[in-house]
């Protein structure tokens, strides 16, 4: 019985709300027309909600539905707010109304599966990628991945970076045979769109027409102690860092990168990695 009650309750809460869900106010606590219609069809159609209402028969149907709506509203509102915090640039790009419309569908289709909701939303970028909206704004999923990577970097395991001097102490020929281990918060995003420039634009007062949205950009996300930072990197450096993150040794990563980009400057790229403090171990030093 309890199991059935919880199934009915859970399914009723998960049902995609017909309501707009702005800030909690009177409208959220009243029945929408469609919910009212459902109630009037109680004898014809045994929906989850109506089965649940039987367990709440000491209220009028209207009042029971309004009371359940509070739980439903708490569920959607709290998770929309979490997604708003995490995907702030998507909110800026598409506005509150559209964001909430998409967020509600995402929450209904992919509710959290565990109580650590600070890390809820991993699949939101992939969800955005298959929405009609991404035909108009093809960069939106990559912008969401950027938001997500920044968000996750805050919670990754702590690790101490190696100092520049440690690089200098290693024989250069031996260093070439080494692999570099990156700080757990480090992420490389290689996008076909100008995700770095779009973010810069959102945080400035520039005019939209000054941005070419479809120019590929690569972004490196690092955490310096507890501060999350992000850098735009040249395509060649991005290829190089990607090889290193796939555990290639320095010699192999340099050679493979140069085969693709003759203009690649390895010293500059290694200097940049040391400066960002995203290397935590040099592996293979004898």
């Amino acid at each position: 019985m309890l199991s059935k009650t919880q199934t009915l309750f859970g399914e009723t809460i998960l049902e995609l709300p017909d309501l707009e869900l702005p800030d909690l106010k009177q409208a959220d606590l009243e029945l929408s027309d469609s919910e009212q219609d459902d109630l009037e069809q109680a004898d014809l159609q045994q929906t989850n909600k109506q089965q649940l209402l039987k367990l709440l028969q000491h209220y009028s149907q209207e009042e029971a539905a309004a009371r359940i709506a509070i739980y439903k509203n708490n569920f959607y509102r709290s998770l929309i707010d979490i997604l708003l915090d995490t995907f702030a640039s998507i909110h800026q790009l598409i506005g509150s109304k559209h964001f909430e419309y998409l967020a509600k569908q995402f929450i209904s289709q992919q509710p959290p599966t565990n109580p650590s909701v600070a890390l809820y939303g991993a699949n939101f970028p992939a969800f955005l990628a298959i929405q009609e909206l991404s035909q108009q704004l093809p960069y939106i999923a990559d912008c969401a991945s950027f938001d997500w990577a920044l968000h996750c970097a805050y919670y990754k395991k702590d690790a101490a970076p190696i100092a520049a001097e440690e690089f200098l102490e290693i024989d250069p020929q031996q260093l070439m045979q080494c692999q570099l281990e990156f700080h757990p918060a480090t992420q490389l995003l290689q996008s076909n769109y100008s995700i770095f420039s779009i973010r810069e634009f959102l945080n400035s007062n520039e005019q939209a027409e000054q941005i070419h949205f479809d120019e590929p950009e690569t972004v490196l996300i690092c955490r310096n102690q507890y501060k999350v930072e992000h850098y735009v990197v040249e395509a060649a450096s991005g290829i190089f860092i990607n090889y290193l993150m796939q555990h290639a040794n320095l010699e192999q990563a340099i050679s493979d990168t140069m085969a693709q980009c003759a203009e690649f400057n390895p010293s500059q790229a290694i200097g940049f990695l040391i400066q960002t403090q995203c290397i935590i171990t040099i592996q293979g030093v004898k």
């Binding site: 199934t7 859970g10 399914e11 809460i13 739980y71 998770l79 599966t113």
Partner: peptide, 14 residues
């Protein structure tokens, strides 16, 4: 918690 979902709220029990 139920049906594989976490409801992020304190839901009532009979």
């Amino acid at each position: 918690h139920g049906q594989g979902a976490y409801f992020n709220d304190l839901l009532p029990l009979p």
